[in-house]
Amino acid sequence: MTLLSTAQLIARDTRKDPRGHMVPIMLAATVTIGAIALIAYLLWPTWGTDPSGGPARLPVSIGGTLFNVPTAAVRMKIQRHTGPQERVDLHFSFPSLEPPEPPKHVSADTVEEKPQPIDRIFLSIAAHHDSLAPDIRVRTIYPRYLEQAATPVDDGLTMRAFRDGSPYGGEDLFTASTPGLNARCTRDAATPGMCLSERRIDGADLTFRFPRSWLAQWRALSETMERLTLRMHGPKG
C-alpha cells in the first residue's frame, strides 16, 4: 500500500470519527522520528574518534633526505605532519630514548619546587642549504679560536678552551676519536652548561643538545646519538 493511499484511508476514517485524527498524527510522528534516528545513525562519522589512532612514526623529507621520526617525540604540533619540511625539533628521554612524558601541571603548590634535572636529549634536523659542514667547521674554523693547550678529561676524551673575546668565548670543545665525538659546550654558571654536537646526513644537519654533565658518560652518549641517527634515517628508520 502506498503512502498516498494510506493517507486517503486515514482521511476517510478521520471524517467518520473526528477524534480519531490524533492516532494518525502520533503514528506519523513516531515513523518520522524513527526514520531520522536511522539516518543519523547511518551517516554519523566514525573517523577521528580514536585519538590514539595516529601513526607512531612520520616519514618526513628534510633537505631532500628521508627520516622516520617518532610522532610523540616531535616538540611542536605544527611539525607533526608527513612530507617535506624545513626543520623538525625532537626530544627523547635519556637513556631510554623513548618520547618523554608530557610535563606535569604546575600549580601554586608546586611552583616553588626546585627545577628538575634535565633528563632528555634534544635533536633538531634542518636542511643545511650547502652551508659549511659540521666536521669541516671543527677542523678548519674552531682551531682559529682555541687555546693551544689540550686537557685530558677521560680516557680518549680531551678538552680545549676557546679564547676569551673570540666568537666562542666562554665555551669549550670536547673531542674524541673512538667512538667519535665533537661537542661544543658552554660552561657551568648560574645555569648548567649545555653542549651541542652536529653531524651531516646528505641534505640535512642533525644538531644534538644535552647537558655538559653528561660528558662524564661520553661513550654511552656518543653511542646514543649514533643509535638515534640510525633509527630515524632511511625508509625503515
Rank of each mutant, 00 (worst) to 15 (best):
R200V: 00
I39K: 09
R120N: 05
R15S: 12
L132N: 07
A37L: 11
R80H: 06
L42D: 15
D130G: 08
A189P: 14
I201G: 00
D130A: 14
P192V: 04
R15Q: 10
F94R: 06
E198D: 07
L215C: 00
G63W: 07
R120E: 04
P115T: 08
E226G: 13
S93I: 03
E223C: 01
M26F: 14
H129E: 12
A29S: 09
Y142A: 12
R80F: 04
A28N: 04
L196S: 13
A220P: 02
R120C: 04
G54H: 03
F122E: 01
D17V: 13
L27V: 11
A204C: 01
V69W: 04
G169H: 05
P70S: 08
A126M: 07
V60Y: 03
L9H: 15
P167H: 03
R75S: 06
Y145R: 01
P18R: 10
R120A: 11
L157D: 06
L146R: 10
L173E: 00
P70E: 02
S222R: 03
K104S: 13
D13Y: 02
H129Y: 03
A220W: 01
R200H: 06
P102V: 04
T110C: 11
V69C: 05
V111P: 09
P18F: 13
I33R: 10
K77S: 08
P45T: 10
M225G: 00
D50Y: 06
P115L: 07
S213H: 05
M26Q: 15
T49E: 06
Y145V: 03
L3C: 08
